[in-house]
Nucleic acid binder design. Sequence first.
RNA 1: GCCCGGGUGGCGGAAUGGUCUACGCAGCGGCCUUAAAAGCCGUGGCCCGUGAGGGCGUUGUGGGUUCGACUCCCACCCCGGGUACCA
Length: 827
Amino acid sequence: MGGARGRRPCHRGSDWAAGTTLGAVIESYDPHAIEARWLARWDGATLRRDGAEKRYVLTMFSYPSGDLHMGHGEVFAIADAWARFTYMRGYDVLFPVGFDSFGLPAENAAIKRGADPVTWTYANIRTQSDSYRRYGMAADWSTYLATSDPEYYRWTQWLFLRLFEKGLAYRRESAVNWCPQDQTVLANEQVVQGHCERCGTLVTKRTLTQWYFKITEYAQRLLDDMDQLQGRWPESVLAQQRNWIGRSEGAYVDFAVEGRDEPVTVFTTRPDTLYGATFFVVAADAPLAAELVTGEQRPAFEAYREQVAALTEIERQSTEREKTGVFLGRYATNPLSGERIPVWAADYVLAEYGTGAIMAVPAHDQRDLDFARAFDLPVRVVVETGEPDPAETGVATAGDGVHVNSGELDGTGKADGVAAAIAHVEQAGTGRGTVIYRLRDWLLSRQRYWGAPIPIVHCPTCGEVAVPDDQLPVLLPPTTDVDLTPKGTSPLGTATEWLQVECPSCGGPATRDTDTMDTFVDSSWYYLRYCSPGRTDVAFDRADLDDWLPALPYIGGKEHTILHLLYSRFFTKALYDLDLVGVTEPFAQLVNQGEVINQGRGMSKSLGNGVDLGGELETHGVDAVRVTMLFASPPEEDVDWADVSPAGAGKWLKRVWQLAGDVGSVDGRAVDPATERAAAHLIDETTGHMVEHRFNVAVARCMELTNLLRKAHDAGHDARPGVEALVRMVAPFAPYTADEAWERLRCEGWATRADWPTADPALLVVDSVTCVVQVGGKVRARLEVAPQIGEDALREQALEAATEWIGGREVRTVVVRAPKLVNVVLV
RNA sequence: GCCCGGGUGGCGGAAUGGUCUACGCAGCGGCCUUAAAAGCCGUGGCCCGUGAGGGCGUUGUGGGUUCGACUCCCACCCCGGGUACCA
């Protein structure tokens, strides 16, 4: 299936390059001719070099749904410039390429238009690969992979089995998110405000037996290891991941409920407010609620439960809504005070969080207070915060204060009150301190065809049996054997022949698992595979991983802030524990590139403001488009295509090309010392901005250098050393133009493989500095002074220069910051 | 509501305690041209002045620290993104 067809598409020259005679002399700046010429020459060249320090420059790989768009243009321009610069600075650079090629669009195209997912996917991969190469990407095609290749998903299955052996992959029945449109289950992370992240359909709940990865076991490590990422990942990404994991410290407290043998446990972050608990609430949709309701209250409860079930997720989650609930006719006992409090069912308590039941402390929790006021339940202050009485104001007081009406806790503050309360319940055996997380286990089964089959066999006698490693991959059955029509069950179940297998354990008749894996499983380890391309004996080689990991940087969009990054971090840790990987964090630095928008808004079909990347490349050329993306703003910011000028970028590139030609055709000129010094400073500054990936400023400095050298050349000076540096510094942004200009300079080899220029330190030493003389903070004069000038000498000169501005007034003080500034402060 | 990011010319953006607006786009004036495009030169806060020059103002708002603040501190306003009954 597919794999062999998918490997290394378009590795050799493509159609658009045909017809150009190699070596033809190009006389005017014609981007397309230059592109064709150099693309053919670059064929297969990578950024690898032997014996140098290794760097791994990684971009999030793309889903092959059609051709490249403007967003790809942005991320690829950034990544390629970074990778090329890193290489020119002397590193051995791994810059891989691949496709995340399993997933719903292929299958939906199959259902809608009858296209074979295999054919559809690999045709798109070929199109995108062609465009990718044309865009000038210096990627190493020997790393190429597509997650739908059997030789890739074989290892996806292999890794699943390793996690299965460790108990990190398991099956259980539970209520899951279900998308009625896509007819599949969704992970928590794929439900956005109650809707399917992919198609926007309202998500419903279903009770199904599904496969999960035990990511919750890693919750604390996912949190702790963010220390390694602090300052290297965007703060917002770290904040969102912390939020998502949702660590919460508190206590479990057991409440005896009359007429029930077992106590009911609640989770609370405020065990110190136990004496303020005036009622007890159970999630209306939890089985516990139905169990606890007493006979006479049952009709009211059933009516309420139906009313809640009829609400949409959106309605239910609205915080504006009035609190609703129903009394269950039963009472619970406070384990500290012994107080008897009524048990209610309500929908503001969530069945899935904590234990699905809470102790309500209306005085110190806004939600509980709202509920208490709606049902006229008592409000008892147990922490004096100095704020007005919640029962009167309707505003709960959550701050610190002194405990009152709290028995043994009286007089304590919030922190020691919490500790004391935990100590008391632990001693009494009715509770314990704990930490809980919002994070749920990762639901990985999908009832769809176009994904990696889960390598498990269900045997009536042996149960869940792993497919032996030597029988991997479990190949997808051909589409001709499968009914792809969505019907809520796995399409693989209709492949009758494929389904029936011998149990690997007992040899009896058994059936295959019919679910496929979430495509986020595929993308949780591809960056490992890239390090050991083409290996058929292992998923990846530990020595290769030790060479390359972690990736520095990882470049991609904000849409993967939680999903992909959290899953990949989990995988890396799980594989670290299996001793398969040597690092605990795969991505040492994360860059979220901005989006390409148009007229202030995201491009979309409905707005009709889309810009076609192919069209822009046709009009302006690859280099001009790349430079436009990079020059517009820092990588993290959005680029509004209505505000930028690819034509302007093209003009600059043409001037570089022209200058290289002019300089290349003259000899025997002398270098102008002033130009030389100015150029050295610009080279130095450009390098500094590149290191900090401020590509927009680096381009600006290159433009200044172009202007400077043009003037020098026109004045009859030798601009060659400067232009040779300039052309090399342009190479990461505009590789085609740089290599062409390099040739016009009559230089050896390629600019794109030359060393990054360095400024002669002797030229960076300044022999004269402009000193600003301020009077009362205003610039009044400028002096040319030696950089080593002493404070006293400078003060003297400055006072003289400022005499006119001082005008005989009394000088209070003179601030001297030699050699750059003197400020004369008047009384 | 909470969390994160941001507010500098007509526009994208430079500048992280010391000359605000680098570089570019757009505009305006000029050269070249029969004309246009392209290219090149000049110009870029406001006011006065033919000019040299001078006066005033200026980084969302208000305050503070400092000889000096886009930059640091406090309060607020606005914009963008994320998240939301998580006990």
